[in-house]
Each structure stands twice: as C-alpha cells, then as structure tokens.
C-alpha cells in the first residue's frame, strides 16, 4: 500500500534509482558467481570441481570463456542419482521437521525471554542478557562429548528429532533473544500501557499487541533459527543412529567423505537443499518490505 503513495508524495526528493541498480547488479553478480559454479558442477554430469580451462596462449576471449560458469554439456544425471540412490527425500523431510520445530520452539522461547528483558526491570536482567551472549563465546570444538553425554546418556534423547530440536533451539536462542529484545525496545510502550489500563493480561498484550508489531524481527529470527537447524551436520551425525532419522546435510556428506570426493553429487544435493531456504525467504520477505508496522501504528 505504501509503495505508490509514498512515491507520489516524496516525488523529487527520492534519490535517483539508476546508480542503485548499478550497485545492486554488481553485488548480485558477486553473490551469485560462486553459486553459478555450483550449478555448473551440478549440471555437468561429472564429479570434478570445475577449473578455468584455457588453450595455449589464450586470448582475452578465451579467458573470458574460461571464467564464465557453464557446463560443457548439460546433464541431469547428478540430480537423479542423488534423489534415487538414497532416501534423500526422506532426509529432506526430516530436516524440514527438525528445522521447523526448531524455529517454533526457538522463536517462541526467545520471544518470551526477550519480552521480559525489554519490558521488565528485575535484578539479574543485565546478567541474564549477558549470559545469552556469553553462551556464544565458548568455542564448540570440545563440546561434542559432554553434549553427547547429556543428551544421550542422561536425557535419553539419542536418535530422536526432539533431541536435535532442543540442541538447535538452544543454539539459536541467544541471537534470537538479542535481536528481538533490540526490536521490542523500539516499539512504543504507550499501546501496552493503554491495554493494561483496559485490563488486558500480560499474555494478551504480548500476543495481541507486541508480537504483531515485531513481525520483521520475528521473520529475521525465524529465518536464522531455521538455518541453524537446516545446515547443521556434525551433531545430527553424532546423535542419530538410524538412517531413517538422518537429515539432509548429513545425507549430503556421504558424497564427499574421506578420499572420495564426488562433487557433482554434492553440488546437486546442495542445490536441492537450498530450495526450501529460498522458499522460506520468499515467504518471509513480505515482512521485510518497507512501510509497515511500528511507524504506521504510532500515527
């Protein structure tokens, strides 16, 4: 709704679009160039990583051809192999279950905590905020075995999606809390105070007033929480003892372990695995579009 009105209202005050497009195109090229190589490898039907291949005494154009990612011949064989050799679809589904659950649990717990940090003044508040930050500081290299002991030996959550969801949620919570707390801080309190006078309970205020206003931040944290679960490999590999419970990144790693490096399969799998992320982003990006929420509510 804001797009056109704003344009007509601001009119000449808007900066010119052309340089912006130039910048965006440059940035986009930078961002997709390596990705295009992934596509090239995936569609090459071969297993080798691509190299810039030039004839002797190459001309400028020979070199240009060499740096343009495009397979010599297009083949879908890598994709069909990835999808048929293993229960890859099942693993993608597992990943989806785990990541969505992580997103829901992580974002929900982070919302409540962040809301408390933003709105209540209580002793230990700063220490609590700090402790979420601190939790990100210890390098994870030595944590695998203690984590295994807690999850598998004590909580008996080995080979369950629940175990993974709990770990991924706790991994994603600190960022989500900080992000949401920062955003909640920008939401004016007048609305809540009015509702409080009307007799609304804190839960109602939170769900009915604050959360809808914080949609952009919730979208960002949701994407983050989802990604935490979606790409994780080593914990999933350590905790899951059944092939039917494996996740997609775990399945992908079968192609490139040890001496054998089948990059064609890996590239094809990587593309398949990225599709849901892009879809999720497409879905969430409407919350990241200008002219919504906080500002308009205040007026």
């Amino acid at each position: 709704m804001g797009l056109l009105t704003n344009r007509s209202r601001a009119g000449a005050d808007e900066p010119p679009h052309f340089p912006m497009h130039v910048l965006l195109v440059v940035a986009t090229l930078f961002s997709i160039y390596p990705i295009l190589w992934v596509f090239t490898i995936a569609f090459s039907g071969k297993q080798s990583l691509a190299i810039a291949d030039v004839p002797p005494d190459p001309t400028f154009w020979d070199r240009l051809r060499a740096v343009l990612p495009w397979p010599a011949e297009v083949s879908f064989s890598n994709f069909t192999s990835v999808l048929t050799d293993q229960p890859f679809a099942r693993w993608v589904l597992n990943s989806a279950i785990v990541s969505i659950a992580t997103t829901v649990v992580g974002v929900f717990l982070a919302c409540t905590a962040a809301y408390a940090f933003s709105r209540f003044r209580f002793p230990g508040r700063q220490a609590g905020m700090m402790s979420f930050l601190v939790s990100q500081m210890f390098p994870g290299t030595l944590m695998l075995i203690p984590l295994y002991i807690i999850l598998v030996k004590w909580l008996n959550l080995g080979s369950t999606h629940l175990g993974l969801v709990l770990v991924y949620s706790t991994i994603s919570i600190p960022f989500c809390v900080w992000m949401l707390k920062g955003y909640f801080d920008t939401i004016p309190r007048e609305l809540e105070e009015a509702a409080l006078i009307d007799g609304a309970s804190p839960a109602v205020i939170f769900f009915r007033i604050v959360l809808p206003l914080a949609k952009p931040a919730v979208a960002v944290t949701a994407l983050f929480a989802f990604m935490t679960g979606w790409n994780e490999f080593i914990l999933a590999a350590t905790l899951m003892d059944k092939e039917t419970m494996y996740t997609a990144p775990l399945g992908l790693r079968f192609f490139v372990g040890g001496f054998s490096q089948q990059w064609g399969f890996f590239a094809a799998g990587a593309i398949i695995v990225s599709i849901p992320v892009v879809a999720l982003f497409l879905f969430l990006q409407k919350y990241l579009v200008s002219g919504l929420t906080a500002g308009s509510v205040k007026g």
């Binding site: 961002s31 390596p34 990583l49 992908l252 892009v278």
Partner: peptide, 17 residues
C-alpha cells in the same frame, strides 16, 4: 532473493569453490 543465496547454500561446497 539473489543476494541471500550465499547464505542459503551449504558453505562446505561454496568454500571449496
């Protein structure tokens, strides 16, 4: 969408590329 692709793709392969 094009700009978030580096984040979406598993970095194990893009790092090697």
């Amino acid at each position: 969408v094009l700009l978030i692709l580096p984040w979406a793709m598993p970095n194990y392969i893009t790092a090697l590329i």
